[in-house]
Every structure is written in C-alpha cells, then in structure tokens.
Design a protein around this nucleic acid. Structure first.
Length: 302
DNA sequence: AAGGTACTCAACCGCGGAAGA
DNA sequence: CTCTTCCGCGGTTGAGTACCT
C-alpha cells in the first residue's frame, strides 16, 4: 500500500472543540479502562472522534494532575534551561514538569518565553552597542546555540544547572522523586468522577440546554476557575498530596499505574543521563561553567 | 460603540519510530 | 526481514478573547 492510511476514517469524524458531553464520555471510558488503546476508544464509546483526538484531549486537558494557569518563575526557568539543553523536545521537557503538558509548555514557549528572550537579547544588543543582524548577536545567541550544539561536557553542566535550580523549593524536581509526586493523579480521578456526577445531575435549568452546555463548558474551560480546574489541578503542595494519597490508594491506584507509565518511559533516558551526570559529573560542576550557564543570560528575565 | 489588531491556547496535521503480524 | 498499524511528538492553525484606536 502506498502512502500512509489515515489514522481514522475521515467520514463522520467530528473535529473542533470538545463538548462537555464528549468529555464525560471520554473520561468515563478511561476511568473504566484506563488510558491507552486509543484506537478502540471511538468505537467503544461511540464518540465521533478519531483516536488521536481522544488521546490529545485526554493528555492535554482531561488528564488529572494537570496544572493550568500561569507559569511561575521556577517553571519558567526550568523551561528555559531545558529548552536550551534539549531543544524543542517538548515532551522531554514536560517530563520534568509533570504538572504541565508538552502542549502547554510549547505554547508558553512560543507565546511568552521566545518573546521575552528576544527582548532580553535585543536589550543586550543595545547595551553592548552591537549591530543587529551581524551574526545576530553573537554573544547571547552564540551561547544559546553553543549550548544546543553542545558537547557532552557542557550539556552535563547545563543539566546539572537546570536540575539544581531553586533547591530551596520544597517541590522535588528529580525524576526519581517525581515519580512519587505524581500520586495526585490517582486521587484526582475520584474527583473527576464526582465532577461527572455533578455534570450529569446538573439540571438544564437555564432556558436552553445549549446554554447549560456552554455554561458548563465555560466553567470548565475557564482558567483559574475553582471547580473543574482546582479539582483536577495538581496541588502545588505536593508533599501534602503525597501524604494524603498514601492513605488513599483506592481503586484509583490502577489509574496511577496507567498514568505513570508513559511518563516514566519518556523519562528513562533522561533519568539515566541524570544518574550518570550526578554520579560522574556533579562533583565536577565547576563554577566557571556554571557562571557561563544560562542563568547569566536569563537573569534579566526574573 | 464599533472595527481592527494582537494574543492565547485547544486542536489538528503529518511525520517518524515502535510494535506486532 | 518486510509490511502494516498504532502511538506519540513537534509544528502549525484558527476560533475565541482581550486590548487598542
């Protein structure tokens, strides 16, 4: 067969924004069967969506543990460092920020950080009286590019740097410890169930069901809205969540298994790298290289 | 108040890699 | 080993919203 067959039958496949009803169907199905086997989701649920769309909706929006809303300084720093180190490998970057989706990080990078860095860059150029287009700011850009094409030693330093950001923060950052902080995924599925019940029971009190639909939708979509978001969001006070969760491993623990696996898989190589880094390189994190690290370039951002 | 512009972010598209037959 | 199918990723789009004139 020539060419790649479509992931799904294009005929009758719905596209565009998801409705709350569709969300409910999808979440209900995943609650029962767990995420994965996306191919069978449309058939099993009757959703007129392609498998990809279902997966995307789940991973980017419905999945418990997703933190929405503004990125804090620490997250910004992490993203900037990791982007410099890993390039646009958003999934890899997201594995270090388990509360954020790769899509969110990508969007945030494209809409905020890129611009911010550009401003910094041009600011530096002006300060240094450097000509614009002349190899386009060799000092700053050169460092970024150098890091992207980095030799392994520099990469080790940068990763070391990135992972040691804000050690004072209580939130654990190393993947080894992240695996424990992901427990809230599990507890939150219960919340989804409660939420779904609410949705189901919600009287279509408003004159039209369409109105009710949209009000539910907007309540869900609304950023920083208590309700849906707060229920699903990954409590920033991870330690508390973990404690709670350790006492609360109910039926949701199966969710944890389903949820944790994909991330772990993507994380494994980095975990090895880090392990190797910290075993081998941590002691060598010499100050000179750290000083030339991105912190220098990004310090103006924060 | 109306129209235009900029911005945000959910969702789509197409590709590459992994897995399985 | 080859072919097919599925999954996941990164780039891109476009609808909705906010802001400006």
């Amino acid at each position: 067969m020539m060419g790649r067959p479509p992931c799904c039958d294009k005929i009758g496949v719905k596209k565009g924004p998801w409705t709350p009803e569709e969300d409910i169907v999808l979440v209900s199905y995943i609650q029962e069967h767990g995420p994965g086997n996306w191919r069978s989701v449309p058939n099993s649920t009757g959703l007129m969506r392609c498998s990809k769309s279902c997966r995307l909706r789940w991973t980017n929006y419905l999945r418990p543990g997703i933190k929405r809303g503004n990125f804090n300084d620490h997250e910004e720093k992490m993203i900037i460092h990791l982007q410099a180190l890993l390039g646009n490998r958003w999934a890899a970057i997201a594995s270090y920020l388990p509360q954020r989706t790769d899509n969110d990080i990508k969007n945030y990078w494209n809409t905020h950080l890129k611009k911010k860095l550009k401003n910094i860059q041009t600011g530096n150029n002006n300060n240094n009286n450097e000509e614009e287009g002349n190899s386009s700011s060799p000092q700053v850009k050169g460092q970024w590019e150098r890091r992207l094409q980095t030799d392994i030693h520099t990469a080790k330093q940068a990763l070391c740097d990135a992972l040691s950001l804000d050690k004072s923060l209580s939130t654990p950052l190393l993947p080894e410890t992240q695996t424990t902080t992901r427990f809230p995924y599990a507890s939150n599925t219960e919340n989804i169930a409660k939420l779904l019940e609410k949705w189901m029971k919600k009287p279509t009190g408003s004159s039209s069901s369409e109105g009710a639909k949209s009000s539910v939708a907007s309540a869900c979509m609304q950023k920083d809205q208590p309700g849906f978001d707060s229920l699903l969001s990954f409590n920033s006070d991870c330690s508390q969540s973990v404690v709670e969760e350790s006492n609360n491993l109910t039926m949701d623990s199966c969710f944890y298994q389903y949820e944790i696996k994909p991330n772990q898989e993507t994380q494994v190589p980095l975990m090895f790298l880090e392990k190797w880094l910290f075993d081998d390189g941590a002691a060598q994190c010499n100050e000179d290289i750290m000083n030339m690290s991105l912190q220098e370039n990004t310090s103006g951002l924060f």
